[in-house]
Structures are given as C-alpha cells and as structure tokens.
Design a protein around this nucleic acid. Structure first.
Lengths: 326, 326
DNA sequence: GGTGCTTCATTGCGATTCGCAATAATGGTT
DNA sequence: AACCATTATTGCGAATCGCAATGAAGCACC
C-alpha cells in the first residue's frame, strides 16, 4: 500500500466514530458490539485502534464498566458532530418540487419552436410551476458548451454534431410539407413534382432542417426558382398568403403556420430526408431532479407514441447519448 | 462480515471524502491520484465507490476534465466541513499551562499532611500557577471512589487497600520517632525500650500509620501506659511540651512538629513497620495533562532520591498500579 | 486464598478486500 | 483512421478483516 500524503493526518473512519459513540453511551465493549452488529473481539480490536490513533486509553475498565478519560469526554461532542455531518452527507438529496420551486430554466430552441413548442411549455409551466421562469435561447454552435456549462438546461430541436457527454431523447419525427396561398391560381389540393419545379419559391434560411432541404435539391439535381429568401419565419405567412410563392417546411411548423394564418398545406412532392426532433441535455445534469422534471414535462408534451417504444439507454453512448426514461 | 446496524446508513470513509475534495479541486482522476498518493486505477475504483454510495455520477468526463454534477456541487461544502471536523478530532489535544490555567484540584491527605505537605504544595502552586486552587480532603474509605469519579484528583499518604484502576507513585519512606518534653525529668538524649514501657504516653487515634503502631504493640505484647488519646494532632505539641508524656509518630510529622514547637526528637526503641508515603490517582486521569502536572509537582517536592531509582511501570499492575514517571 | 462469573484483550486462521500493473475504453485532435 | 491523454476495468498477489477460541483482568462469594 502506498502511504497517503504525509501532510495528512490519519482521520478516523466512520466505524471508529460509531464505536466511540456507542462505547461512551453504553460503557461496555460487549454492549457496543451488539449495538454495532459486530462480535466482541472485533470491537475490542477497534478500540485498540482508536486508542492508538488518538494516543489515549479513552475508556478505562472499572467495576462500573468502561469509564471515559478526560480526553474522551473532551472529544465526544466533536465525534457526535462528525457522525451527524457524515449522516447528512449520505442522506442529502436535493429534491425538486415544481409547485414551490423558484428558478429559471434556459431552453435552446429554433425560432420555429417559439411558435410550435414554446407556447405549450409556457402554458404547462405556468399552471404547475408558478415560480419557474423560462428563457428561450437560440440553438447555435455554442449550444453544446452552454449545456455543459449549465448556462442552458435543455435544447429542443435537431442537432447533428453534438459531442460526447450529452444525452438526447427523441420527441417526434418530422417530414416535409408545402404551404401555398389558398387562392393560388394554379395549385389547388395537391402539388406535383412538375408543379414544384415550375413554381416560384420562398426559402427560410434558418432552422435546422433547411440543410436537409438543400441536400435533397442537390442530390436530385433540382434547381428551384427561389424568388425570395427570408432569414426567419416572421414574414413568411404574410408572403405566402398574398403571393403565389410556395414554402417548403417541416410539417410541425408548416401545419402550425397554416392553421394560424389560413394557408393551404400540401404533401411535399420532393423526397426530403425526415428527421427527429429531440431534446438534449448534458450528462452532468442527468440525475439533477430539476433538469429531470423539465425534460419529463417536454417529453409528456411532445413525445409521440411511436417514439415511446424505443428501448432505453441508461448511459450516454458514443457520440450522442440519448435517454428514453425518466 | 456481520452487517452493520440496519438503521445506520453507510457513511463515507475519510479516503472517499479526501477523494471528493481532491477531484473537485483538480478536475482530474490522474491528478487526484497523485495528490492522494495512490495509483490512478485505485482512485478510479474509489470514484466508482463514491458514485455508488452517493447514487450520482458526481463528476462527468469532458474535454475540460471531470466536471461536477449539481449533486457534487451541493455536497462539496459539507464534504469539506466533515474533513475539517475529522482533522480537528485527530489534532485535538488538551494542554495544561499552569501559568494560565484556572481550576481547582482536590487532594486527599491525612491531617498530618496539612502540616507536613500542604504548605509546600500551596507555596509552589501559588508561585507558578496563580489560577489554581487547592482543596484538601480527608483520606477515608471513600477515597478510591472519589479518585475514580474525578471528585478528587490525587491522594497523598499510605493507602493499603486501593482496588484496581489506580496508579501510585512512591514519594518517601517513613520510620518512627518519639517526641518528648525537652525538660522531661527522666528522658534526656535517648529513650530505651525500658523507658518506653515505663513512661506514660499520648496516642493520636488518626492517620494511616497508627494501625502500624497498634500492630507492633500487639505483636510484641507490649501494653503502654496511655494517659491520653487524641483524635488529631491539634493539641499534641502543647501536651508534649507541658507534660512528661511521650508521643510516638512517623518521622516526617514528628520532626516537623518538634521543629516548630521546640520538642525533643528521639529514635523510637520499638520496632514498628515503616511505610512509604505515596501519591495515588485513577487510571482515567493518567494521561490527563492537568493531573500529570499536579503529580509532577508533588513528585518534585516530596520524592526523595532513594525512591527515584525504582524502575518504571507504564501501566497499572494487579492490585495497585504505580507510576514512576511523568 | 481459592473458585466462579462476567467482561475485555489476544491469537490464529479462513475469508474478504485492497492496490496496482496491464490493458481496454473513451474523448478529442490531427 | 491514427494517435494521444485520460478514465475505466481486469486479474492477482498482498494486506486486512471478523471471529471462534481462549487468555487475562476485575470482582463477588465462600
């Protein structure tokens, strides 16, 4: 055995602290043994060890039993405090009660999620956790670092190159739809591939899915007539509702916008890779009750049945660990 | 291994607390191993044990090193407090500084010692330990119980049936002398056995030595002419100084009284068993610095050269343990 | 003083745990 | 994919453990 750091004194082990306490209370090695669930010879050996480490006989045999020395009397208070502190360490478990907790959660998400996910999160949280505040932050190259640093608690969306140390949980799949003006002169109830190539388009140059769309166009060697590119979704409903431009979006945001703004939703004729929207968090917070509550909330709100059956993974796996359980 | 008391949780051992602290400080298993003087695999195993006992990963591997979980961050303060408390336990040693200490010592002694020993003790203590108070108590059947209970710190004298658990240290031997009126009509410079039997005597019916005198008289079948019996030494000098009565006393008190009151000291013609005046204390206080100081003081004041050479005994022996060392 | 009882201290030994060299696995960089 | 640094795991000889058996100590009783 390597000797421990010579600058460190030997510290008493919990069993010796327990012995000290029990012997002080009972005045008997035999009774202390019973109390500690050990045999009498074992406890006698432990006492010898205590005596050596504290350099004092500590308890002297007499007709009245084992009587403490002044040194033992001086130490018993600190021994009991040390035991109490060690018990606190073992029992200390932070809990999270949404009804009473007061804290802020930072959730990274795309702009689209402000419309598709955030309202439902906010409504739920305001109902069951009035002291909780939600802050939305953008998903970007900094997101993994923010999750690890605890500057963000969760990320919702589709993140492709998250490094190790993060968990993920699938929420719902996404395929693609086209939005059109309900009064569109040429596009009624469906849009064909031919229509798609002929018509003018408006593209959103943000969000995690736009790269998939670009990939699909390149792979199928299709060049769209892109009449307009927007940096975000803000003006999109107005543009699609007053022109004949076609917008191609992930289904969730597409249907949401169509619903609110009375736009026409059409199955997309282009074969674009679907993707799964997930929630991501750092392994440091995997067992944190607060973080766990938040992702349970998101899971309940957004997880669709068909992804619930995916088998669990209890720990992060190479590249992108995911967690399917509370 | 018998299982410990089921009502007790497993408490963290000091080495695991040290590991927690070192890992929190360094963020590296390898560096923590160096700091703790163990190998890296050993520390990795200890970390696994910590994780299991606290039911939390505690530190998560990342590019920046091992990062603490919220649980680890919540625990580190208590871990460090527990370590500090355990260090205090190891280092706590009561000291006794006579120059500054304030306490009371209770010393059991015979009445004779009030005259022979107490003045010297008091003078010394008042000079080097101004905050110390001395209380003299009588030696009696209760003395052993008082020593064990801490109600008395020391006993000075000749105690014959002290039970186990007590230490003793020889101070000085005692033989016997006779006191006479310097103007005695018949007793001049010496007293013969014939004189001894013929003369009238005054006896002191107290002190530990009077039983030895009675034994000697009985064994030698001598019947003294006891004209007076006193319960103590108070009136003795006046009686001897104004009558022709002979007093037989242990040498120390005899010479002391003769010195103060101008009495004649004569070698006792009767063969009476000598004895050794000792100091006694209970084993519970053997290592107590205060008790040790007090008996060192008495040793220095009263221990004669011829008893200093007696070999030491480091622990109490059957029936009457004695200690010859500081 | 001898005997007997209870309790604490010591011994010898089989069982368990320990620390670590060697190596596998992991995370990150090139 | 290869390489490097670090953490996790395995197998094994060494060290420590708990305890049955027993010796020693303290005390009551005869």
């Amino acid at each position: 055995m390597k000797h421990p750091d010579l600058s460190e004194t030997n510290l008493l082990e919990p069993r010796l602290l327990r012995l000290f306490d029990a012997l002080f209370a009972t005045g008997s090695v035999t009774k202390a043994a019973e109390k500690l669930g050990q045999s009498q010879p074992t406890i006698s050996i432990w006492l010898a060890r205590l005596r050596k480490e504290l350099d004092d006989p500590l308890f002297i045999r007499s007709a009245e039993g084992m009587l403490p020395t002044p040194r033992a009397e001086a130490l018993i208070g600190t021994v009991r405090q040390a035991l109490e502190m060690l018990r606190r360490l073992a029992e200390l478990r932070s809990e999270f009660d949404p009804a009473t907790a007061k804290r802020r959660f930072v959730i990274c998400m795309t702009d689209a999620s402000h419309i598709t996910l955030l309202p439902a999160i906010l409504a739920h949280v305001r109902r069951v956790a009035p002291g909780i505040r939600i802050e939305a932050a953008r998903i970007g190259g900094d997101t993994p670092r923010m999750l690890q640093a605890g500057e963000a608690d969760l990320a919702l969306g589709y993140i492709t190159d998250l490094d190790a140390g993060h968990f993920q949980q699938a929420l719902f799949p996404q395929d693609w739809v086209c939005l059109a003006n309900p009064k569109h002169a040429r596009i009624r109830d469906r849009i064909t591939a031919k229509d798609f190539k002929r018509e003018a388009h408006v593209l959103i140059r943000s969000g995690t899915g736009h790269q998939l769309l670009a990939d699909a166009l390149r792979e199928q060697q299709i060049v769209l007539d892109v009449a307009l590119e927007l940096p975000g979704f803000l003006g999109l409903p107005a543009i699609v509702g007053t022109t004949d431009l076609i917008a191609t979006l992930p289904r969730h945001i597409g249907e949401t916008l169509a619903h609110y703004y009375g736009l026409r939703v059409l199955d997309c004729p282009l074969a674009i890779a679907g993707f799964t929207v997930k929630q991501y968090w750092h392994a440091r917070f995997h067992h944190d009750p607060a973080n766990q509550w938040l992702r349970d909330v998101c899971g309940e709100l957004f997880q669709q049945q068909e992804v619930r059956g995916l088998h669990r993974s209890g720990r992060p796996k190479k590249r992108r660990p995911r967690d399917l359980t509370s």
